[in-house]
Design a protein around this nucleic acid. Structure first.
Length: 535
RNA sequence: GCACCGCUAGCUCAAUUGGCAGAGCAGCUGACUCUUAAUCAGCGGGUUGUAGGUUCAAGUCCUACGCGGUGUACCA
């Protein structure tokens, strides 16, 4: 190969000064990775070079490596559905033109076999026989077709001596030449490779395609369920002039035209509420939120969120609707209210789910009466006993939530609503109608993680202003997650928002609950740090 | 953010106390008209993540950086 040439890292690495933008950001402590602007063909792996040569050979002969159109008249799945039941050594007399990706290839002298896959798990065998295609075409098949190529074949649907459903080829042509070899089909790809090169994962693993389809079914079910309840799907800004609706650090960007800082939204809440003020009494949105925080098996920097609001409803109504949405989604996806996870375990989502009281359950768990007026010192002592670390600036409600997560969450056996949260951690939620110090909020836990959260929304503009001023004070003290004072939102509330219930439901997490997979499996292309160099 | 572990051929992985960098699949050449991860014979393929250091000698030891994983902290 190209011995003695410059290595790739020299071509990719930072030569000369980084671009102006990079230097500006570097001053703010952000270091951009310098990406190559010109791709030199260096160090091409042997197998890629060989496949490029085969591509060139096709072109040299006036054939196409990537034809624009092919005389396809059916699909692998359709042929399998119709003829998959045939016994061995049958002929149908039916001619088909199909295309698929070669995933196995077995060449025996004058008869070649290839397994063409549709990617969804369906496959069909192509048989290329000297007697059918002639000497030249057979030789070309052997010389030019590699594992991974998309191939078009035309021929009769038959079954082989061993009963394999096949197309006895009379003509074939390249449909798309693959320049890169596929990974080993019989070993699992590393998790990192599967995430970084999802296209390969989708080729190799039918379950990867199934996940993508399950996601579509789930989202469609949510839409159907909401629309059947007269909810209106609306879209609200992703680019916001101030971030609001959740306590979270935003991603910051800027508008050249406006000359101002903009934020990718952390939640759509404040805009959906504006819509309710305007008389759109039942609204929902399914879209992405962005939170500039760490990622792990249940958190992703960008994640899909369903939020829905209903006028003249409270948190109990919303709990019922949420349960029904999830049950309808489970039925749509799996056909059952008992979902089977990837690992084979079964999880029952049927019936009415228990509601437990946050303070009540915590009191039982620690064998000590805990209320919103429990002294700070008592909470700190309990945290120390349980070995829970907390920041001294954390509000009392935060300590209560920490204690609850530590002592109670692991005891849940099925979907569970946790009711009545501390007021000081829920600035957008209405005080409980009867009880002091707690708000009308629930968290829905499934499989140990929070799947959804619902509220009786705070609609009193005077109290909302007080709460946001409190948040803004925290922000000015350096709390980067604190909410800002959104004057336009308050102005909207001051026009009168009907009493309403609201829910936020993590779509990725619903997928996790239905399948038992991690968040990086439910998202087709999760954010990953770029590779320094693509091999 | 901190700690630990990992990074070797296209893919999945080996390589004893520092001592010739290997296997399977994939690839190339040849044989084979019913194969199923086809089989048989032969042959190629590596800057061991990147940059530096120690050493007669580094995949192996040291330093820094990159990416990933696990734990922990912070946090939806």
């Amino acid at each position: 190969m190209n011995g003695g040439q410059r290595s790739r890292h020299q071509l990719v690495g930072g030569r000369g000064k980084p671009p102006l933008e990079s230097r500006r950001l570097a001053k703010n402590g952000i270091h951009l990775i310098t990406l190559p602007t010109v791709t030199d063909a260096v160090d091409i792996p042997e197998q890629v070079q060989i496949r490029m040569d085969k591509r060139a050979e096709l072109l040299k002969r006036g054939l196409q490596a990537y034809p624009v159109t092919l005389p396809i008249d059916t699909t692998i799945s359709a042929v399998r559905a119709e003829y998959g039941h045939l016994e061995a050594e049958q002929s149908t007399g039916v001619m088909v033109g199909i295309a698929g990706r070669v995933i196995f290839s077995r060449n025996t002298g004058k008869l070649c076999f290839a397994t063409l896959t549709a990617g969804n798990g369906d496959s069909i065998q192509a048989m290329v026989s000297l007697a059918e295609v002639g000497e030249d075409s057979l030789a070309d098949w052997k010389a030019l077709v590699d594992l991974g190529d998309y191939i078009f074949v035309h021929g009769e649907v038959i079954t082989s001596k061993r009963g394999e459903l096949s197309v006895m080829v009379n003509t074939w042509q390249m449909a798309a030449k693959a320049l890169r070899p596929l990974p080993v089909a019989h070993k699992d790809m590393s998790e990192e490779s599967r995430v970084r090169q999802r296209y390969v994962d989708l080729i190799m693993r039918p379950q990867a395609q199934e996940m993508a389809r399950t996601r579509v079914k789930t989202v469609a079910a949510l839409r159907r369920s909401l629309e059947s309840r007269d909810y209106l799907e609306i879209e609200t800004p992703m680019l916001q002039t101030q971030p609001g609706g959740a306590t979270a650090r935003p991603f910051i960007t800027s508008s050249n035209a406006f000359g101002i800082e903009l934020f990718l939204r952390v939640a759509p809440e404040l805009f959906l509420k504006r819509a309710v003020v305007g008389g759109l009494e039942r609204v929902f949105e399914i879209n992405r939120n962005f939170r500039n925080e760490g990622s792990d098996s249940t958190h992703s920097p960008e994640f899909a969120m369903l939020e829905f609001y209903q006028a003249f409803a409270d948190y109990q109504v919303m709990a019922t609707v949420t349960r029904e949405l999830i049950q309808e989604a489970a039925l749509a996806v799996t056909g059952s209210l008992t979902v089977t996870h990837f690992d084979g375990s079964e999880h029952d989502l049927s019936g009415v789910w228990p509601q437990i009281d946050l303070y009540g359950e915590l009191s039982k768990a620690v064998n000590h009466e805990i209320t919103p007026s429990t002294l700070r010192q008592t909470l700190e002592e309990l945290c120390q006993v349980a070995d829970i670390k907390y920041s001294p600036s954390a509000v009392n409600g935060k300590l209560v939530e920490e204690l609850f997560e530590h002592h109670v969450i692991s005891t849940f056996s099925g979907p569970t609503f946790v009711m009545h949260f501390p007021v000081d951690t829920s600035p957008l939620t209405r005080d409980h109608r009867d009880r002091k110090g707690v708000v009308e909020k629930w968290d829905l836990y499934v499989d140990g993680f929070e799947l959804a959260t619902g509220y009786s929304e705070l609609v009193d503009p005077v109290i909302q202003r007080e709460r946001l001023i409190e948040q803004a004070k925290l922000g000015s003290k350096g709390d980067k997650e604190a909410m800002t004072l959104d004057e336009d939102f308050l102005r909207a509330l001051e026009h009168g928002m009907p009493p309403s219930g609201g829910v936020g439901l993590g779509v990725d997490r619903l997928l996790m609950a239905l399948t038992g997979l991690g968040i990086r499996e439910t998202v087709l292309f999760p954010l990953v740090k770029p590779e320094r160099d693509v091999p």
